[in-house]
Amino acid sequence: MTDAKVLNDWPQPYRLMDAQPYWEALADEQLTFQRCADCEQAVWPAHSVCTHCGSAGLSWEQSSGRGTIYSYSTILRGPTPVWSAIAPYTVGFVQMDEGYFLFTQIEGEPDGIEIGKEVSARFVQRGEQKLPVFALVTSGEEG
């Protein structure tokens, strides 16, 4: 892969083995995370041992795809041409309803994005990879 190709394409995730089920599920537009069978807490990012209690009893669950904005920033100056082309775009942490924090892109008008607002996931194709991004939940969709 040449440098020019790297700069002009969507960066692809550096896949590690713990997260293989996550990436596979995303191909089917399913957002998943791990939960510990012993302490029952959500575990994220993907691990082979529970970061909270040390148990190896982790299993994959499907997320509701809903959460609230914990923090965010709108980027005016993209790092490479593919990002400059979609700037301004917003990245941030979503506190998922299941209790873990996911770094993601938050779509929508920057002025409408605020800490605490509800968001839900949808899926976008970025190069060979399908990725979850989030958008504000409008009042009509709530409940």
Binding site: P45, S71, P79, F103
Partner: peptide, 23 residues
């Protein structure tokens, strides 16, 4: 940034530090 879970979303260093500023 984390090449697995963050880089695919195009964060810049200012945008990562800005997460703290916003909080």
């Amino acid at each position: 940034a984390d090449p697995q879970f963050e880089v695919p979303y195009g964060p810049t260093i200012p945008a990562l530090y800005a997460q703290a500023a916003r909080r």
